[in-house]
Nucleic acid binder design. Structure first.
Lengths: 322, 322
DNA sequence: CCGGACTATAGCCGTATGGGCATGGCAGTG
DNA sequence: CACTGCCATGCCCATACGGCTATAGTCCGG
């Protein structure tokens, strides 16, 4: 395998630098100057390469040296090798500063509608060459991917069960609200909007095993109510919204998803116990890549902004004239 | 200029080989085996590169090592650098053996119709990747180009004036014959085909300054005849042939050009004094490039073949029943 | 809990490397 | 003819390079 004459250790990168310098300067003396060494060293270095290749690279002339038939192509190769190395160096540096690279982020519904898109947008305007990969999945799938190293981080509702080797960071609270379509009878109805009254309508429930589902069930249990009899379990956000606007279904949605949608109205029904944190989850042991760190920074920024927004909404809801 | 961390002399090609070996083997121990060195050397070498780059290239795991985010791209770069070097090596070797490269050959009419094309064809079937450049020109132009190094060699009628620093090599004799078109009156005429009788027709003469022209003039002088009154001087072979087949013109042509052409018939008029050698001219000082040497070899081969052909024709012409 | 498979660290060593200086030779040029 | 650029050669020297051995540390599987 190491049968190449060139790669058996005798040829050094120095030699390539030397060759290109000679080619650039046209003279051994000037090449020596440009490399801050003495001329005999250049002569010897050139000799070494030529002996190694068994070929004369430069023709010696009274006014300097000129590439031979072999020299020309070889010089070009040398240049391209050096350029490649410089590029490799540059690449590493860019990756170090997070200007180049890939960050793979997992998400599951909560946080993915506002927090993540905003953070990605901000990240991209900072570092356009950064690649962001977003993968959707259920929380436990995503945790697997995090642990196996296929994901840099996940954004979403923080789970109460803290898996070892993963750490969570809260970014903002995103309250859950019950919603129904804009023209839904409940908005004008006389039966009120108590949880019990809403049991008469069909519901969309979060699919089992999600944190939100568990919380929602806890609410019903806490109020001593049965789960709605007529319910659909749905993971697809698109399907969910379609059902929501075209039928009389009731759903529990993260507040910011509901707020953003004109065809959907939030019900005043209190769900005080459901107020869980949205944040990022990332592996505890290994440090995030620079790219991941950059995204994380923007997630924190946008998270803080959303937290401020939430406080506004909270006070607005508390006000009597709403 | 030498500000690159990578190229300041600390990074060695060894390191690149090392990195790729590690990537290939997946284990420092196996990499060490494949390089026929001991494992600590590999560990240290890897450390050196990582320190140099300020980045971890491989993640150490209990069962071996795995490329990090930085490692992957860098390994690819390293591979491509090494591949480039191998290619450079290969290229030089191919050029050395004449399998790759360029040979530039000059030619002026004689020899260019059979000898050169055949030699080129033979060369190409040997070394398909060899580039052959053919330049046409007058003998003195070509000699200039030979001396300046723009030509590797020329093929053509050997000139009697031997320029210093150039040497000639005879390949075959190519006799000159007088020719006329197939239906030309001279073939059936009663006035014979003596040179004197031919003076009545128009002629095409080689352009001044060529060896052939001088020789032709010498023939007329020797026989005590004036030059034909009606004559055209022509360098273009295409034009010449066109005139030859469409008019009653007489021309002097190298035998093998005439032999090859069905529309043209050779006149039996003897031109004994015109029988000059065709051969190659090449610079005396510098050795021919491998590519040029390869072409030269084929020129000699084809030259010998043509010389044999010439002997056949000569005996055929001498025979009484012709 | 031990053994096996890796990697990491430390210390050692000969020699090739990469540099310098001085000098010589050679081909144009004034 | 002497001068001026260049390149080539020879000799010298410190050091870093590229190996080695021995050993320790860590994780996993049985």
């Amino acid at each position: 395998m190491v049968t190449d004459r060139l790669l058996d250790g005798r040829l050094k990168l120095r030699h390539l630098v030397l060759i290109t310098a000679i080619a650039d300067e046209g003279t051994l003396v000037r090449a020596a100057e440009s490399l801050h060494i003495t001329q005999p060293v250049v002569t010897r270095g050139l000799r070494e390469v030529e002996d190694l290749l068994g070929v004369q690279l430069f023709e010696r002339m009274p006014r300097g040296v000129a590439p031979t038939q072999y020299g020309g192509p070889f010089i070009e190769r040398a240049r391209s090798v050096l350029a490649e190395l410089r590029a490799a160096d540059e690449e590493v540096r860019l990756m170090q500063t997070g200007q180049l690279g890939t960050v793979t982020v997992g998400t599951h519904l909560a946080g993915s509608n506002l927090l993540l898109p905003r953070a990605i947008a901000a990240l991209k305007s900072d570092h356009p060459r950064l690649t962001v990969v977003v993968r959707e999945g259920t929380p436990d799938t995503l945790q697997q991917l995090l642990l196996s190293g296929d994901l840099d981080l996940t954004v979403g509702r923080l789970s109460p069960t803290v898996p070892v080797r993963l750490e969570q960071e809260r970014l903002h609270h995103e309250p859950i609200r019950l919603v129904a379509r804009a023209g839904h009878p409940v908005h004008t109805g006389t039966r009120g909007t108590s949880l019990a009254a809403l049991l008469a309508f069909p519901w969309i429930f979060p699919v089992a095993q999600t944190a939100l589902r568990a919380e929602l069930e806890a609410v019903f249990f806490h109020e001593g109510l049965p789960l709605p009899a007529d319910r659909v379990e749905c993971t697809s956000m698109l399907t969910l919204r379609s059902l929501l606007v075209s039928t009389d279904v009731i759903a529990a949605l993260p507040m910011f998803i509901a707020v953003d949608d004109r065809d959907v109205k939030i019900l005043p029904t209190p769900l005080s116990s459901i107020r869980r944190s949205v944040g990022v989850t990332l592996p505890k042991d290994r440090a995030p890549s620079p790219a991941a760190a950059a995204l994380l920074m923007h997630l924190r920024e946008e998270g803080a902004r959303l937290a401020a927004l939430e406080r506004e909404y909270a006070t607005a809801e508390a006000a009597p004239f709403h």
